[in-house]
């Protein structure tokens, strides 16, 4: 098993504020890593660095063989290997579910129009929403929109999926339906990095949990570590979170 995502001593500042102070971790192929921590701990920033939505100041960062810290990086090649799902879904409101899903495959990978619908259907089946193929995003619930966003990302057949607090905008019931889809993905062998506040999900589904605090990886271990935190900060975080 080799690591598909490797962060080594990553430093990142916004202006004079250093948000990442030497972050290092790796994600193996097929592994599900949950990244937890307080708001402002740098967990979302770390995730966004992985597909170069943010550029890092120093350190080395390699994702699926792409040197992300290299200026000459082929951005579009990286983005084809790394899918991303956001807190705010970010579906394209003027396009149907089918068009949302097939836009990038058609434009980027040259999937012919007649095969596009089958591709959309296949992706939608993986998130259990095949019947919504012709709907517009505004006709769907938040949970459904987020599942379509996952399907849209899946249609590009990424090797790694990044989830940035994807359930934070949803009520508990809708959160459940999105988490179930993610769990199915995880069981199917997808490599995933999940920034989340869902401790139960982190504990049950993640192979490994990374607790970030003040721009650093503070504590890391299997899901069970949440039941038995080593550091005071993690203990504090967990007890406040419940």
């Amino acid at each position: 098993m080799s690591a598909v995502v490797k962060l080594h001593d990553i430093h990142k500042s916004f202006g004079s504020v250093e948000v990442l102070k030497g972050v290092s971790f790796e994600i193996e192929k097929g592994e599900v890593v949950a990244i937890i921590g307080r708001s402002g701990s740098g967990k979302s920033t770390a995730l966004r660095c992985i597909n170069r939505l943010e550029t890092i100041q120093s350190g080395t960062l390699e994702v699926c063989g792409h040197r992300v810290d290299d200026q000459s990086l082929d951005l579009r090649a990286l983005r084809q290997d790394v899918g991303m799902v956001f807190q705010s879904y970010n579906l394209f409101p003027h396009l149907t579910v089918e068009q949302n899903i097939t836009l990038a495959p058609r434009r980027v990978k040259g999937v012919p129009n007649r095969e596009a619908r089958a591709l959309a259907l296949e992706s939608l089946q993986r998130v259990g929403l095949a019947e919504k193929i012709d709907a517009y995003p505004e006709q769907l619930s938040g949970g459904q929109q987020q599942r379509v966003a996952i399907a849209r990302s899946l249609a590009m057949q990424p090797k790694v999926m990044l989830f940035d607090e994807v359930t934070s905008a949803l009520d508990p019931q809708l959160t459940g339906e999105v988490l179930r889809v993610m769990e199915t993905l995880a069981r199917g062998g997808m490599t995933m990095a999940v920034v989340t506040h869902e401790m139960a999900f982190a504990r049950r589904v993640a192979n490994r949990v990374i607790f970030m605090h003040q721009g650093k990886v503070w504590e890391t271990g299997p899901g069970d570590m949440l039941a038995d935190p080593k550091t005071a900060e993690l203990r504090d975080f967990i007890s406040n979170g419940l």
Binding site: N51, L53, R76, A77, R79, Q80, V82, G83, M84, F86, S88, N90, L91, F92, L103, A104, R107, V108, R152, S153, M156
Partner: peptide, 21 residues
């Protein structure tokens, strides 16, 4: 801005994003 970001993450070029999204 997030519409640009979502498109970027789907490997669309800047021009494709402008025209289609």
């Amino acid at each position: 801005r997030t519409q640009w970001e979502a498109s970027e993450c789907l490997a669309l070029t800047r021009w494709q994003t402008l025209v289609d999204v």
